[in-house]
Design a protein around this nucleic acid. Structure first.
Lengths: 198, 198, 198, 198
DNA sequence: GATGAATGAGTGTTCATTCAT
DNA sequence: TATGAATGAACACTCATTCAT
C-alpha cells in the first residue's frame, strides 16, 4: 500500500515534470526552456528535478517518447479504421480532426527533429526508427489499396513527407492551409488511381 | 581597380563571416554555434565580427536570405525549364541533381525553420513570405498542366510539403530515401492525371 | 537553534555580498564595480552571486535600501533628541558625529543619485520617496521651533540641500570643510531667528 | 585667410563634437554615452573623433571646462549686480532665471561630480579648484554685507551647498521645489541678519 | 525523497582605442 | 584631415549540473 502510494506519487511527480516540460517546450522551444523554468512550473526545486530526471537530455528523450507514441497511436488507429470501414468521408474527418491540434503537436515535433539533427544522436536514432516503423505500416496498407504494387514504397514516403511538410506550413502561418481542399484532392486522385488500368 | 579591390576585400570579409557561419551552423545548428566559434573560424576577433554584423540575429537573417534566395532561384529555374522543354526524364534529372545536396541545404533549412518558430518573428515572416511566393508560382505552373483547375492550389501545397518532408527524412538518415522511385511515381501519376477525363 | 544558524548562514552569504558590494562601490563607484569584482571579493563564483541576487540592479537596490535606511534612522534619531532635550551644544555634537563618516556614506549617496538620474527609474522613485519623507519630517520639526510658520517648508528644503551640498564639498576635498564654524553659524542664527519678533 | 578658414573649420568641428557630447551626456549620462554615439550624432567616423580628441577623458574634460566656465560666469555676473544695484526683488529674479535651466545644467553637473569622484583625478582637481574659487568670491561678497565677519566663511560654504543640494532635489523631481518660497526665506532672513545687532 | 546552495564554463554584446591608408 | 576596419578586454547574465544535508 505504502509502496504503491510511493510509486504513484513518483509517477505522478515524474508525470507532472513531463507535462510541464512538454508544455513549456512546446511554447518556447527546447533550447529556450531551462530546467529552472520547469522546476518553477512544477513548484519543486532543481535538486528534486534532478532526482527524477538525471539530465535535460533525459527529459527530452521522455518527451520524444511520449510524443512519438501519441503519433504512432493516432496513425495505427487511423490505419485500423481504413481497414475495417473505409469511406473517403471518414478519412477526411479523421485527418481534419488530427490536423486540428497540429500546431501544438507539430511544434514539439519540429523542435525534437532539430534537437535530433543538431547532435542528440540517441534521439535521432529513436525518431528514425519510428519513422521507419510508420512508413512500413503505411506501405503495407497502401499495398492493399493500390493496384500497382511497385509504387507502394514511394507512396508511403510521400505520405509521411506530406504530413511533415504540412506541419511546417501550418506552423509558419504564412497563409491558411486549405486542409479541406487538400483532403479532397488526395481522396479524388487516390480513388481514380485505384481504378486505373495498369 | 584598386578601389574595386578595396571594396571587394570589404565584401569579402563579410562574405567570409557569412560563409563560415553557414558552414558551422549547418554542421552544428544555429544554437550550437557561438559567435566565438565563428570568429575563431574566420580568424578574427569577436569585435571585428560585430563590426560587420551588429548581432547574431543579423547573421542568422543574412544566412536565411542567402538560403532562401538559393532555393528560390533553383525553383524558378526548374519551373522555367518545365515551361519550355518539358520531358519527364529531364524533370527527374533536375530533381535528383537538386536533391544531391539536400542534406547540406536541408539542414540549414530546418534550423532556420526552428529558429523562426521559437520566437524570431522577423525571420518567421521572411520565410513565410517566401513560402507563399514559392507556392503561388507552383500553383500557376500546375494550373497550366492539370486539367482540373480547382485542384491546383491543393496540389501546390502538397508539392511544397513533399519537398520539406523529404528533407526531414533525408536528414534523419533512418533509411535511404528512394528518390528514383519517388520521382518515377510522381511522373507516372502526373502523366495519368493529366490525361484523365474530368 | 540549528535552523536558526542555517538561516543565519544564508543571511550571512547575502549579507557578505551586500557588504562587499557596498565596500567596492563606495571605493570605485557603481559603474566601476563589476559583478566579477564582487564575486572575487566574497570568494564565490559569479554563479553563486546570481543565486542570491538576480541582477546587478538587484544589488544596487539593496544597497540603496540599506543606505537610505541608515540615513533615515540617523535623521529620525536626531530629531527625536531635539524634541526631548534640545541644547545647541548637543546638536553640534550630533551633527559633527554624523559628519565624521560623511565621506564614506556620502560617496555611495552620490553614486546612487547618479545611478538613479541616469535611468534607473525604480531607484529614482525610491530615493525620491525617501527625500520627501525626510523633508516632511524636518518641516514638522521646524514648525515647532520657528516662529514664522510660513517659512517651515522652505527651511526644510534648505536643510536637506545643505547636507547634500556639504557632502559634495566634503568628497571633493578641495578645501577642508569647516564643520565647526558652520555648525556655530547655524546655531547662532537659528537662536536669533527663534527670538525674532515677527 | 586659408589658415583662418582651416582653423575655423577645426574649431567648428571640435565645437560640434563638444556640443553633441554635452547634449548626449546631459541626456544619458557620461557612462551611457559612447564615442560611437557621439560620432554618429556629429556624422563623422570614430577615427575623425579621435583626430580631434585624443580620448574620451579629453572630451569629458572639455565638457567640464565649458560647464564650469558657464557657472563661473553666471556667478560672477550675479555678484557684480549685487554689488552695484542690489535689491531683493532683483535677486529673486536672477535666481529664478538661473534655476529655470537648472535641470539641464544640473544633470551634467552631477555626472561630472560622479565622474570626478570615481577616479578621474584630473577632473576632480579641476572641479575642486573652481569650487574654491567660487566660494572665495562668495565669502568676499558676504563679508561686505554681513555684520559678523567671523561667519562669512561658513555662510559661503552654506550658499554653495544650498545650490548643489537644490540641484539634486530638482533633478530627483520627487516634489516640486518651491523656489519662490525659498528665495523669499533667504531674502527675509538675510535682511534681518544684516540688521541684527552683534 | 527533496532541497538550497554552489559552480564554472559559456553567451551575446559593448566599447575605448589603434592604425594603415 | 578623415576614415573604415580591427581589436581585446570587459561586461552582465544563463544554465546544466553537482552535492552535502
Amino acid at each position: 500500500m505504502k509502496l504503491n502510494r510511493g510509486t504513484k506519487q513518483n509517477h505522478s511527480m515524474k508525470e507532472k515534470i513531463l507535462l510541464a516540460s512538454i508544455d513549456l517546450m512546446t511554447k518556447n522551444g527546447i533550447n529556450n526552456t531551462s530546467l529552472a523554468d520547469i522546476a518553477k512550473e512544477v513548484n519543486i526545486s532543481k535538486g528534486t528535478l534532478y532526482y527524477h530526471y538525471s539530465s535535460k537530455d533525459d527529459i527530452i528523450f521522455d518527451i520524444a517518447d511520449n510524443h512519438l507514441n501519441i503519433i504512432s497511436e493516432a496513425l495505427f488507429d487511423c490505419l485500423d479504421r481504413i481497414n475495417h470501414h473505409f469511406t473517403t468521408e471518414e478519412l477526411v474527418i479523421i485527418v481534419l480532426k488530427n490536423i486540428s491540434n497540429i500546431e501544438r503537436t507539430g511544434r514539439i515535433h519540429m523542435y525534437l527533429l532539430c534537437e535530433a539533427i543538431i547532435g542528440n544522436d540517441a534521439l535521432k536514432e529513436r525518431i528514425g526508427l519510428k519513422y521507419v516503423e510508420w512508413r512500413t505500416a503505411l506501405e503495407k496498407q497502401i499495398m492493399e489499396i493500390i493496384s500497382d504494387k511497385s509504387h507502394a514504397k514511394a507512396a508511403s514516403f510521400l505520405l509521411i513527407s506530406i504530413v511533415d511538410g504540412l506541419v511546417v506550413q501550418a506552423i509558419l502561418k504564412a497563409e491558411k492551409v486549405p486542409y479541406g481542399e487538400i483532403a479532397k484532392f488526395l481522396i479524388d486522385y487516390s480513388d481514380k488511381i485505384k481504378k486505373l488500368p495498369l
